[in-house]
Measured scan of single mutants.
Amino acid sequence: MPVRRGHVAPQNTFLDTIIRKFEGQSRKFIIANARVENCAVIYCNDGFCELCGYSRAEVMQRPCTCDFLHGPRTQRRAAAQIAQALLGAEERKVEIAFYRKDGSCFLCLVDVVPVKNEDGAVIMFILNFEVVMEKDMVGSPAHDTNHRGPPTSWLAPGRAKTFRLKLPALLALTARESSVRSGGAGGAGAPGAVVVDVDLTPAAPSSESLALDEVTAMDNHVAGLGPAEERRALVGPGSPPRSAPGQLPSPRAHSLNPDASGSSCSLARTRSRESCASVRRASSADDIEAMRAGVLPPPPRHASTGAMHPLRSGLLNSTSDSDLVRYRTISKIPQITLNFVDLKGDPFLASPTSDREIIAPKIKERTHNVTEKVTQVLSLGADVLPEYKLQAPRIHRWTILHYSPFKAVWDWLILLLVIYTAVFTPYSAAFLLKETEEGPPATECGYACQPLAVVDLIVDIMFIVDILINFRTTYVNANEEVVSHPGRIAVHYFKGWFLIDMVAAIPFDLLI
């Protein structure tokens, strides 16, 4: 008679799926529990143990900040960024110097990925580790590398530091407007667009060049630039800015003055950032001319202004700041037409079709709590990747769950009947059967004279019903998954307890 339990259901295979997918890609990662103190490590794979030199037993239950890997060259700011990422709910990448158990130093890129439950609360953290440099290539500990984003994938490793954006290309926007319009339909740009040429040739750093990471940081200074100062900065030398009595002219307006920039070969870094931020506020060169004239017309309804409409929906549905990093990277690809469009465009503009998908598509409701890094690593669709929660398995109709209350009560009843059979069957065979043979035949009273025979008949009927119930009862397979398919249940029961239950259900007393 089957006594099969499996009270692990309803099970959740999400954690096993993450481990299996990460292991298949030869990654070095740990999984931490966000619900406990210090976000203790609950799993670390073999790749991480080989990377740091510690065994799994030495890593388990330690804080996922990996303070046991810190050393003299470990930056405090990087460690603080990892700790801050564990307090938030967004994906974050941090470069930090770690030390192995043998004392060797290596520069590592740590990717902190939160995993949320159905309520939107962070319950786990996945920390992925990628070695960037070994100890002989690690720089000085005073050099802070965590304020910069990861290198873009479309640049060669040897040319990542030679990417320079020439400031004269930004200063000569109005001069290039006529050349853009003359391109017409034969050019790649839309009317009114501004073409910015980027020099990728390796050259020595000069005062006129600005690194790509500095251009990325310009967006942080746009908020500090007032509207009046932006307007004066875009007017140009024809209309000098008016300053109040006793007030000095704005240095932001002076930063885009061609006369002032041409007199000296070098520009201050602050002026460069502010000038680029001011130019980015204009949607095209037409807006710059309109600002000089004193009238700013409404933005025209053409394809170039609607190019950012799908980007707005993608940004609203993005799951991490990696989408913004990807957008900034692609927006700086050289030799393309940049349409400086305000994100607050007309909502009635139709979304044009684009061959290049900048932001990841909208994630469906079932995966809105899973970050983009987890979705990318697992390579699963929205119909396959579940949320991290207890999910009731989908069972067929008329199927009994093996952990249901009805099955528990039924098993206790069958257990009592088995005990009765084990006690009274030998007793009936030894004593009652002998008395029946010696006594007179009682054929007239039937079952009324033999109450134990009636009980034995009921017990046999219950055993037959138990066999039928076992054909529709779920079970737990070797992978700790609840199986509810009727065919698989029948095959599993035939290979197991079916023969024993059938022999126990045969009414031998009635056959004798």
Results as ranks from 00 to 15, higher is better:
Glu95Arg: 13
Thr174Ile: 12
Ala217Met: 05
Asn12Leu: 11
Asp67Ile: 13
Arg273Pro: 12
Glu90Asp: 13
Ser354His: 08
Lys344Pro: 10
Asn317Leu: 08
Ser206Lys: 14
Pro141Tyr: 06
Leu173Glu: 14
Pro227Trp: 05
Tyr327Gly: 14
Arg164Cys: 06
Trp154Gln: 07
Arg100Gly: 01
Gly226Ala: 15
Asn12Trp: 10
Asn257Val: 14
Pro310Thr: 10
Gly71Phe: 01
Lys135Asn: 10
Gln84Arg: 15
Arg312Glu: 06
Lys166Ile: 01
Gly139Cys: 10
Arg76Ala: 14
His254Thr: 14
Asn38Lys: 15
Ala244Asn: 14
Ser272Pro: 10
Lys161Phe: 04
Ile19Arg: 01
Gly88Tyr: 13
Pro334Lys: 07
Ile336Pro: 11
Phe125Thr: 08
Arg159Glu: 06
Leu267His: 11
Ser278His: 15
Asp144Gly: 14
Arg76Gly: 13
His302Ala: 08
Gly294Cys: 09
Asp213Tyr: 03
Asn38Ser: 15
Pro2Lys: 06
Ala282His: 14
Gln376His: 07
Phe125Tyr: 15
Thr174Val: 10
Leu127Ile: 07
Lys344Arg: 05
Gly345Tyr: 06
Ser272Ala: 06
Pro141Gly: 11
Arg281Pro: 06
Gln61Thr: 09
Asp219Trp: 06
Phe125Cys: 06
Arg20Asn: 08
His254Arg: 05
Pro10Ala: 10
Pro241Glu: 08
Gly262Lys: 08
Ala83Ser: 12
Val41Gly: 01
Gly6Gln: 14
Pro300Arg: 08
Tyr54Val: 01
Glu91Lys: 08
Pro310Cys: 05
Ser243Gly: 13
Gly238Met: 08
Arg356Ile: 15
Glu177Arg: 09
Arg159Lys: 14
Asp346Thr: 05
Ser283Asn: 13
Leu165Trp: 11
Glu372Ala: 10
Asn339His: 01
His368Leu: 14
Gly238Trp: 15
Ser182Pro: 05
Ser55Lys: 13
Asp136Arg: 12
Lys161Tyr: 01
Val36Tyr: 15
Gly6Asp: 07
Asn220Gln: 06
Ala57Asp: 04
Ser331His: 10
Ala57Ser: 12
Leu316Phe: 07
Phe129Leu: 05
Pro150Cys: 06
Ala223His: 14
Arg273Lys: 13
Val384Lys: 05
Ala350Thr: 07
Leu87Gly: 12
Gly88Met: 12
Cys66Thr: 01
Glu58Leu: 02
Ser209Cys: 01
Asn146Val: 12
Asp102Gln: 05
Ser263Lys: 15
Ala203Pro: 15
Cys66Gly: 01
His7Leu: 15
Ala277Ser: 14
Met308Ile: 12
Arg356His: 14
Arg252Asp: 15
Asn33Gln: 07
Met133Trp: 15
Ile19Gln: 03
Ala32His: 01
Asp355Gln: 05
Lys101Ser: 04
Val94Ile: 13
Thr152Lys: 06
Val195Ile: 11
Ala80Val: 13
Lys21Asn: 08
Ser250Cys: 15
Val325Cys: 08
Trp154Gly: 05
Val341Asn: 07
Ala160Thr: 05
Lys116Cys: 10
Val222Ser: 13
Glu134Phe: 03
Ala350His: 13
Pro168Tyr: 01
Ser153Val: 04
Lys135Leu: 12
Gly224Ile: 06
Glu58Met: 06
Leu167Trp: 15
Arg27Lys: 11
Pro299Tyr: 05
Ser209Tyr: 15
Arg292Leu: 11
Arg35Trp: 08
Asp213Arg: 15
Gly246Asp: 04
Ala293Glu: 08
Gly184Tyr: 07
Ser283Cys: 07
Cys44Asn: 01
Ile42Trp: 01
Gly149Val: 14
Gly226Lys: 05
Ala268Lys: 11
Met124Val: 12
Cys66Leu: 14
Ser243Gln: 07
Gly262Gln: 13
Gly262Asn: 15
Ser351Asp: 06
Asp197Cys: 01
Leu155Val: 15
Ala34Met: 06
Phe68Cys: 01
Ala303Met: 07
Ala89Cys: 13
Gly262Thr: 09
Ser331Ala: 07
Asp323Phe: 03
Glu230Phe: 06
Asn146Glu: 10
Thr65Ile: 09
His143Thr: 11
Met218Ser: 10
Val122Met: 09
Leu311Pro: 07
Thr337Gln: 12
Ser318Lys: 09
Gly103Asn: 08
Pro300Asn: 14
Asp213Trp: 03
Leu324Asp: 10
Arg252Ser: 14
Phe22Leu: 14
Asp136Ser: 14
Lys364Pro: 04
Leu212Trp: 09
Gly187His: 06
Thr216Leu: 09
Pro157Arg: 14
Val94Gln: 06
Ala79Glu: 03
